[in-house]
Simulated scan of single mutants.
Amino acid sequence: MSSQTADSRPSLVWVALSIVYVVWGSTYLGIHYLIETIPPMVGAGIRFVVASVLLAAVLAIRSGGVRVLRVPWRRLGTAALAGVLLLTGGNGMIGVAEQHMSTGLAALLVASVPLWLVVFRWATGDRPAVSTIAGVLVGFGGLALLTLTRGGGSGSALGVAIVLGAALSWSVGSFLSARLPMPANPFVASVYEMAAAGVTLLVIGLGRGERLHLHEVSQASWLGLAYLVTFGSLVAFTSYVWLLGNAPISLVGTYAYVNPAVAVLLGVAFAGENATWTIVAGGLIIILGVGLVVSTERRPRGEVTAPAPPGTPRRRRERRRSPRASRSTPGRPPRRTGVR
Rank of each mutant, 00 (worst) to 15 (best):
L137C: 02
Q219H: 10
T312R: 07
R299E: 13
V130S: 10
G253E: 08
G224Y: 01
N185M: 02
D126N: 03
L223P: 06
S326P: 00
L108H: 07
G153H: 12
A184F: 01
L17D: 06
R67G: 15
G77I: 05
G198K: 09
G224A: 02
G159W: 12
L76M: 13
A220F: 01
T276D: 11
P248G: 03
V84M: 11
Y192L: 07
V118D: 00
T305M: 14
F48H: 09
P39W: 03
A256L: 12
S295A: 13
L266D: 03
P300Y: 12
F237V: 09
V191L: 02
V130K: 11
A247G: 05
G291Y: 05
Q219E: 10
S295G: 01
A56Y: 06
A226G: 15
G142P: 10
F140A: 03
S218D: 07
W122S: 04
G232S: 03
V172D: 08
I286H: 09
V96F: 05
P300I: 06
V304L: 13
S131H: 07
R67D: 14
L244W: 07
S239L: 02
R301Y: 00
S250C: 01
F237W: 07
A275I: 07
A60T: 14
R316I: 00
L146K: 10
R127K: 09
L76G: 11
G25N: 08
S221F: 02
A44F: 01
Y21A: 01
W242N: 04
V20F: 04
S190Y: 04
P10M: 00
I31D: 05
I162V: 15
S218C: 00
T124E: 15
R75Q: 15
R340F: 13
P183F: 07
R74W: 06
T312G: 01
G142Q: 10
G302T: 12
L143A: 11
P309C: 04
I279D: 09
S156G: 15
